[in-house]
Amino acid sequence: MADSEVTALEHAPGLKHHFDDTEQQLESSTLGMWVFLLTEIMFFGGMFGGYTVYRNLYPDAFASSSRYMNIPIGAFNTAVLICSSLTMALAVRAAQLGNKKVLIWFLVFTLILGCVFLGLKVVEYHEKWVDHHIPGPGFRYEDARYFHQAQILFFLYFAMTGMHAMHMVVGAGLLTTLIIMAARNRFSAAWYTPVEMIGLYWHFVDIVWIFLFPLLYLIGRTK
């Protein structure tokens, strides 16, 4: 082990042995996070691709079935997520300033907003369940002509929002971890990389929703 070389730096908070200095470590983490988000874009991109194909194939059916999306909840959830992005950004700011109390408060706000989103999502999913709009053997559709096509739309709806919700759940878990870490004084103005990275992740998940909402709820809606 290159002890002689790293001992001098060992006291820098959070610095791992294999990095030269905190700056290099932060740059690496940031780049790593951005690359990770790139993979996430491709991940959702596959589903957006499928969505584009079927929307082109069956525009009428999609117009018909987007009528069953709950716009008030969707719109409210959009607002919730945008607010949570703001609180997340403010949390990062607080971490930067080394203000532990404010940091914890904003993380808690963000977490609560995330949970509100997820709770409303459950309400929406329940609605679909009651209406038999869950694809599969129990699927029913009011307009018999579009039975198959509407099922594909709902399939995509559940795949896309489901994947998004799963990312939200993961995000909530990460926020909880951050809160615990912050409470244990793990962050300082000199080292708060996890807060910044999870902030990036959180914003990304929000942005995905910003695309999902119009595509699934608004565009081409009839009546």
Binding site: Y54, Y58, P135, G136, P137, H148, Q151, I152, F154, F155
Partner: peptide, 11 residues
């Protein structure tokens, strides 16, 4: 689910 995303019999 057999919801038809890749199955031509279901569109």
């Amino acid at each position: 689910l057999h919801a038809g995303i890749f199955d031509p019999a279901l569109g």
